[in-house]
Simulated assay, not measured.
Amino acid sequence: MTENYDSIAVKYPLLAAPQVQLAGAVDYNMYSWFKTQLGGASGDGPLVVAITTLGGDPEVARAMADDIRLIREYTGRETLFLGKVAVYSAGATFMSGFPADKRFLTRGSRIMLHERQMSSTIDLSGPLNTLHYKLEAKLAEIADSIRIQDEGFRAMVQGTQVQFDDLKRKAASAWYIEAEEARDLGLVLDVI
Rank of each mutant, 00 (worst) to 15 (best):
Y5Q: 09
D6G: 14
I8C: 10
K11Q: 12
P13Y: 06
L14N: 09
L14K: 15
Q19L: 11
A25R: 08
Y28K: 05
Y31E: 14
T36S: 03
S42V: 11
D44V: 07
D44H: 01
V48A: 03
G55H: 03
G55C: 04
G56E: 04
D57A: 04
V60P: 09
A65S: 10
D66K: 11
L70A: 11
I71P: 11
E73G: 03
L80I: 13
L82N: 04
K84V: 14
Y88A: 06
G91T: 06
F94D: 01
G97Q: 02
P99N: 10
R103G: 02
F104W: 13
I111H: 09
S119I: 05
T121V: 12
S125Q: 13
P127L: 12
L131I: 07
H132N: 08
H132P: 05
A140P: 11
A143K: 10
A143P: 00
I146G: 02
Q149D: 12
D150A: 07
D150W: 06
G152E: 12
V157A: 12
Q158R: 07
T160N: 07
F164T: 04
D166F: 15
L167G: 03
K168G: 07
K168T: 07
A171H: 07
A172V: 00
A172R: 05
E178S: 08
E178T: 05
E181K: 15
E181D: 09
D184S: 11
L185D: 03
G186W: 12
G186R: 02
V191M: 15
